[in-house]
Nucleic acid binder design. Sequence first.
DNA 1: TGCTTATTTGGCAATATAACCAAATAGGCG
DNA 2: CGCCTATTTGGTTATATTGCCAAATAAGCA
Lengths: 106, 106
Amino acid sequence: MDAENQARLQARARVLKAMAHPSRLYLVELLSNQEQCVAELTKAVGADISTVSKHLSLLKAVGIVEDRKQGTQVFYRLKAPCVLNFFSCVEEVLKNNLQEQIKLVK
Amino acid sequence: MDAENQARLQARARVLKAMAHPSRLYLVELLSNQEQCVAELTKAVGADISTVSKHLSLLKAVGIVEDRKQGTQVFYRLKAPCVLNFFSCVEEVLKNNLQEQIKLVK
DNA sequence: TGCTTATTTGGCAATATAACCAAATAGGCG
DNA sequence: CGCCTATTTGGTTATATTGCCAAATAAGCA
């Protein structure tokens, strides 16, 4: 694999990696309906606010979400709603692979 | 976030995480046209064969690829071609976020 | 300005991932 | 069987990710 291909795939991997975490997937879901501030998102996710803030920063860095400051609050919203399309495929994969998925959990 | 939601999102994250690596993305691309054996895939990726074998095992464990034994060779093929649909969205995200992507590389 | 609330950043410890090498396994064939 | 080829597995080390706490920053308001 040459350097150019490597760079291309690394960029793609970065975006997918940003999605590949339970809390971040949840954040994307939460933002699919409406923009929300960090405090609200933190309550929903149930982790430390600093943790949620870092998850949001990562999603923002790769371009999946964007933010808007309003007073002391920061509202995040989905910038790339096309990522929601991933879910139907992911669910299909999970459905077709139930037995293996169960092994992975054990 | 309750336990059920956590489990649901963890399963989804597992599938996305399996995709979120340059070599594995490349493997998926290589298999999008035709099934190939481990040796061929290894040559294309340019890593140690044991490394490639492990990447393939991971893709298989989550249900993205499947394999078929023929003599001493193992041929892998795409089991969930719908993952190819991810790429157009990922490219869109990358295009819309060029400046940030460049920062990430630096 | 000083205080309060909201969020981000820095730092650390725990865990997970990745790559290689070496060794094990599996199938075909003399 | 013994050997060869293809692939997987085990083990180790290096690197990356995660989550929390504490501290820093930012904005509004008395």
